[in-house]
Design a binder for these strands. Structure first.
Lengths: 235, 235
DNA sequence: CGAGCAGTTGAAGTCAGTCAAGAACTGTGG
DNA sequence: CCACAGTTCTTGACTGACTTCAACTGCTCG
């Protein structure tokens, strides 16, 4: 089990929103300059090492986050203590939507890889969305995207043989990417994503390497044989 | 495989919204009388027999639905043709939120039991939510609820042994109910919900009956031994 | 250098999948 | 009312995939 790092250590200063590469694709794309002045102030940026927790289940939802780079896992726990990763949040996605409603966060949010996130107060979004139809619409779209992810997670990553699930996970990691190269997660995390054991995850990956479906380009970086993986994933 | 019935046959007239028992708990709880006149008109009510499809994946999302009684399954298909039930919608829930955004529906929505639903045009919700913060908020809450369901479906119903999954499904069916009695689904549907085969579902249910965790009160109606099922579900 | 951890691999056991057959139920038409 | 076809449910035997437990390797980091 990776040990946690406090958020404080990960603080890297105030965000440069105006020049943020994600601006057009991100949550606040539709804001005017005036709105923008309002929200810029309280935004902080963090660089996360793997294992850092952004928040824990039940924490008060004072903040929401956008992911600039890397990957964050959302974890839920079963009564018996076993964990299940219900989603990973990457790219331009938003984290902590549930904070807009009453209650606290519904997952543990933990960095899987080196990641950069921006943090902003929930109250800002809440007040802006009151009288900003475009932001309102953007929020609904975010919620729907999360729901799509959740459904896909179930149908693609929790159905079929271990080989199929691993193949589908790998393909998912390089979707909407220019290259067919990707960084892998720990076997333990892969297991928790796919509902299989660490050992089975390890064996399956090892098998894929032997069959050259995966080629290690540099440590923990793999090039995928997409066509053959796809064939495997589909039947 | 149950054969489909057309929606037309299920039409049972215009809805009596004003006296609807669900009104206070449902989507439109916060509307004024004036708003109400606006939406009442185009609402139709349907009585569905098991197997009736409300909509199919990809259909144009002109309508949304509330469930008054019964249960609707949301089904997704894998490339190889196998199906997975990603959620069931019951009670006062809303169906077809995704229609508020651009694209069509994301699932097949099919009645599991005799059900009653009300249908209303998506455009009505879209226009009302523009300048009605309370409806806006209500919509976000609905989305979040769907997301919670999706997450629970993954952690509770797609994790652990077949016995655990079935036990958790049964407990889920009587949650927020006065009695510990419930109607079961077909073994095929249970399998598609839990990611197990029909045979395994059947064997597990049969086993539960033998162990008196389930007692059949009348045909296809079962009383649950909640404490023992809970013990089973948790470890 | 050694402790600790992630990954790998092996051997044994088990649970669920598969294939197949029979039982129970449903609805239909005579 | 009964006979029949067509489902769905159940049960059995067998197989295979995944889990479990355990040992060993190689890395990283104090």
């Amino acid at each position: 089990m990776v040990k946690s790092v406090t958020l404080r250590e990960a603080w890297s200063g105030e965000a440069d929103c105006r020049n943020c590469a994600l601006r057009t694709s991100a949550l606040f794309a539709g804001l005017t300059e005036k709105d923008f002045d309002l929200i810029h102030d309280p935004i902080d940026q963090f660089n996360l090492k793997p294992g850092t927790a952004l928040y824990k289940t039940g924490d008060v939802g004072d903040y929401m986050y956008t992911v600039r780079a890397g990957a964050i896992k959302l974890v839920q726990y079963l009564p018996d203590g076993s964990q299940r990763i219900v989603r990973i949040v990457r790219g331009t996605d938003v984290l902590g939507l549930e904070a807009l409603l009453d209650d606290g966060y519904h997952h543990d949010a933990i960095a899987l890889q080196r990641s950069e996130v921006c943090r902003f107060p929930t109250r800002v979004v809440r007040s802006l969305s009151q009288d900003n139809p475009q932001l309102h619409r953007e929020l609904m779209a975010r919620w729907q995207r999360a729901l799509n992810e959740a459904d896909a997670w179930l149908t693609e990553l929790s159905t079929g043989s271990a080989r199929q699930r691993v193949a589908r996970l790998l393909l998912r990691l390089v979707r909407d990417r220019e290259s067919s190269e990707c960084e892998l997660f720990s076997r333990e995390d892969m297991g928790a994503m796919l509902g299989i054991t660490t050992e089975t995850a390890s064996r399956t990956i090892a098998g894929f390497k032997r069959e050259s479906l995966l080629v290690e380009s540099r440590p923990n970086n793999f090039i995928l044989d997409i066509p053959n993986l796809r064939r495997l994933a589909e039947d």
